[in-house]
């Protein structure tokens, strides 16, 4: 396997999936972010706080302007993780083709790195997070993400090595048990919610779907590029 091909396939597929996510977000997620910011601004004005509207508009232009680039970078970041896991685990993944294997892995990673974490620390629109608690919330989020990710990784490595036959059903049960303990042991998000729960619930559902879509696109693009550039390269070596 050639380093350049692996890097190119990984980075390119991540950038494509991330850019598509950003474009989808502009249509599906941005309206909720705008609504939440409008509510937050209204609340600040009602409480007598001085709001610099020119600065707010300036920040929103910067934030929206960065959306596509931010999506591409986000995609490259998770694409890098995806590429490493796929390169090492491809043979153990179920599926008849690389596209199927990549799609399966994408589903697992969405579940382990997004959905499981979102059950404990769900996504919130602006107007919910308190700037004073950001480092505390980040450490909780990273802690729970690490527990989910490393538990899944450990169990995936053990899957091939442990001879349990039909008792392999134990593996997902072990994962579930560890995540239940972590869910109970880790403290909740400390911030109080002061805006409409309807807006928050809709935002969470929509973002879970768009991130799921991102992982699906990443899997399909990655599997296709792997077939095009890496499988052919391996076949070339095999026939020499």
């Amino acid at each position: 396997m050639n380093s350049i091909n692996l890097l190119a396939v990984t980075i390119f597929s991540g950038a494509i999936a991330g850019t598509i996510l950003a474009i989808i977000n502009l249509g599906l997620v941005e309206p909720y972010i705008d609504s939440a910011i409008a509510l937050e601004t209204q609340r600040k004005i009602s409480s007598g706080e001085n709001v610099d509207m020119a600065e707010l508009v300036h920040y929103r232009i910067w934030q929206k302007g960065g959306a596509i680039a931010a999506g591409a970078v986000y995609g490259i970041s998770l694409g890098a993780l995806f590429g490493i896991v796929f390169a090492y685990g491809r043979k153990a993944l179920p599926g008849d083709s690389n596209k199927q294997k990549a799609l399966f892995l994408a589903g697992i990673l969405w579940f382990v790195l997004y959905l499981m974490v979102a059950i404990k620390y769900p996504a919130n629109p602006p107007a919910v997070g308190d700037p004073e608690t950001i480092y505390y919330r980040q450490s909780l989020y990273v802690g729970y993400l690490a527990i989910s990710g490393f538990t899944a990784l450990g169990l995936a490595l053990a899957w091939k090595r442990v001879q349990l036959g039909s008792k392999k059903i134990l593996f997902p049960l072990i994962y579930a048990a560890i995540m239940i303990v972590a869910y109970v042991a880790l403290p909740p998000n400390p911030d109080k919610i002061g805006i409409s729960m309807d807006l928050i619930h809709t935002f969470r559902v929509v973002t879970a779907l768009t991130i799921g879509l991102f992982w699906g696109i990443l899997g399909i693009v990655f599997g296709s590029l792997w077939d095009r550039f890496i499988s052919r390269e391996e076949q070339k070596y095999a026939t020499v």
Binding site: V29, A67, A70, Q138, I211
Partner: peptide
């Protein structure tokens, strides 16, 4: 601020 909207949309903690 540059990554602000993507942070919210992808579930990262934000202000």
């Amino acid at each position: 601020e540059f990554y602000h909207d993507m942070r919210h949309a992808s579930g990262f903690p934000c202000h």
